[in-house]
């Protein structure tokens, strides 16, 4: 068990997050606080491309082999090869500009969600830092029972 802290809505929270749980991190400026698993699948599948306020979703991912990547592939129901080919197809279909940008560290993930109001990324719950806003998924936080996002 590791201690993770973040700002949820306006108040900072700390909790003991179980290992191998993946959190959904967005910009603190994003007023969304809960997403359904279906919405999350559409967001990371490039199908839902704008937030409710009209700002564009900006996807960031981690490299193959990471906990976050495993959770992402599980969420989309794809292998690594299928994921790469899926994004090539999305670009060719005109539905995406490129594959989501791969960031090599959680520090850069934090900078990404700070710098881009529309940013969203999956972060190992143990790597959550102040400055990241964690979304509930189907009303649950990473340390809740039956949290749906696990690699």
């Amino acid at each position: 068990m590791f201690l993770a802290c973040w700002s949820l809505a306006s108040a900072p929270h700390c909790l003991a997050a179980p290992t191998h749980t993946v959190a959904v991190a967005v910009s603190p400026k994003n007023f969304v606080s809960n997403v359904t698993l279906g919405d999350l699948r559409k967001i990371f599948g490039g199908e839902k491309r704008t937030w409710p306020d009209g700002s564009h979703v900006k996807l960031f991912s981690r490299a193959p082999g990471t906990t976050e990547r495993a959770a992402l592939l599980k969420l989309l129901g794809k292998s690594e090869l299928e994921y790469k080919q899926f994004w090539t197809a999305k670009v060719f279909q005109g539905d995406a500009e490129s594959e989501p940008m791969v960031l090599p560290s959680s520090g850069m993930q934090r900078e990404a969600v700070t710098a881009y109001p529309g940013a969203i990324t999956l972060v190992d719950a143990t790597d959550i830092k102040p400055g990241m806003k964690v979304l509930k998924v189907d009303g649950k936080l990473p340390d809740d029972d039956n949290y749906p996002l696990r690699p």
């Binding site: 520090g107 850069m108 934090r110």
Partner: peptide
Amino acid sequence: TTADTSSVPASGDASASASQLASFQEAH
């Protein structure tokens, strides 16, 4: 605990990481 956690910059390194992100973004 993990390589990633250790790579999160302390407050003093925030500007370096931000510029690194910007360059990643620019390249992307």
